[in-house]
């Protein structure tokens, strides 16, 4: 059994919350550069240039790249041989969010669903925990904006709908989302499991490096086909017309019940923020 102080979790979540909002990961920046090159619309090209400029300002001045600094998705892989000392995992994560959003001048966006009263500190975080083997804790901090999250959907297809049914659902979801989720987007798809499992898989798929190949050749082919079909709709960056609406489609798959074919779609805006640490 290895002991991890709760203070180190607070510190990690706090720092990653700020870092994630100030500086995009290299894979996202590379995807912008590639998108700018491939985009056929002059307006679309100009949007890619503006996004690259925006990223530079945010990183250099340590300010949020987007005013929607999101709700805090915190994905934790907790080694079963870890003992957390001094406080609970949940409290430590929420304290980290509280401190990061205050000290980092990030927007507090969480509110009570009926009165819409703001909680004032961006807590509670949305925490997804998986118990894994080992004595380490992996923490992924992935702030997600409301505009793109609103475009997420889960559906329960019939097994007879098959792969084509899945593709149709995902492509149509993008068409309906249009300019709302701040394209260029990354489309996360979760297939199988159950209704909530498909949604979690879709979210997790967004943590994969943009442009990296899916290790499953069948899924890799599906990703490429869906990406082409989505971009062929012509919506382009910001939905103003063009060839680069989506930068990538990522799929995660899991077995499901014989009666089911659950599909989750999570569309991520171009501010694809995720930073991680292993404690």
């Amino acid at each position: 059994m290895r002991t991890v102080e709760h203070a180190s979790i607070i510190e990690a979540v706090k720092n990653l919350s700020m870092e994630a909002n100030y500086d995009l990961a290299t894979d996202v920046v590379t995807a912008f550069e590639k998108g700018k090159e491939q985009e056929e619309s002059p307006t679309g090209k100009a949007i890619f240039s503006a996004l690259l400029k925006n990223q530079n300002i945010a990183r250099d001045e340590q300010v949020p790249m987007c005013q929607d600094t999101g709700f805090s998705v915190i994905y934790v892989e907790l080694g079963q041989d870890v003992h957390i000392k001094g406080g609970s995992l949940e409290d430590s994560i929420n304290e980290g969010v509280r401190e990061g959003y205050a000290d980092g001048y990030l927007r507090k966006s969480m509110c009570e669903p009926f009165t819409r009263k703001n909680t004032g500190d961006n807590t509670p975080a949305i925490i997804i925990t998986e118990i894994v083997s080992g004595n380490k804790i992996k923490i992924v901090v992935a702030p997600k904006g409301g505009g793109s999250e609103n475009m997420s959907r889960v559906t329960m297809l019939k097994p007879a709908d098959g792969k084509e049914g899945i593709k149709e659902f995902v492509v149509n979801r993008c068409l309906e989302a249009g300019s709302n989720p701040c394209p260029p987007v990354i489309v996360g798809v979760g297939i199988g499991g159950s209704s909530e499992k498909a949604a979690i898989l879709a979210r997790k798929s967004l943590f994969r490096e943009i442009g990296s190949k899916n290790s499953d050749p069948e899924l890799s082919e599906m990703e490429a086909d869906m990406l082409k079909r989505i971009n062929d709709l012509g919506m382009g960056p910001q939905g103003l017309g063009g060839t680069q609406y989506a930068l990538a489609v990522h799929i995660e798959k899991f077995p499901c019940h014989i009666a089911q074919l659950p599909v989750g779609v999570n569309i991520c805006c171009h501010a694809a923020r995720h930073k991680e640490v292993v404690l």
């Binding site: 945010a58 001048y105 990030l106 927007r107 409301g146 709302n180």
Partner: peptide
């Protein structure tokens, strides 16, 4: 349609892009 981030000390405003209109 905007909800900006808090201004850092010395700044006029934080980040201030548009939110979804519908």
């Amino acid at each position: 349609y905007v909800g900006p981030t808090p201004a850092k000390p010395g700044a006029i405003i934080g980040s201030a892009g548009p939110t979804t209109s519908y």
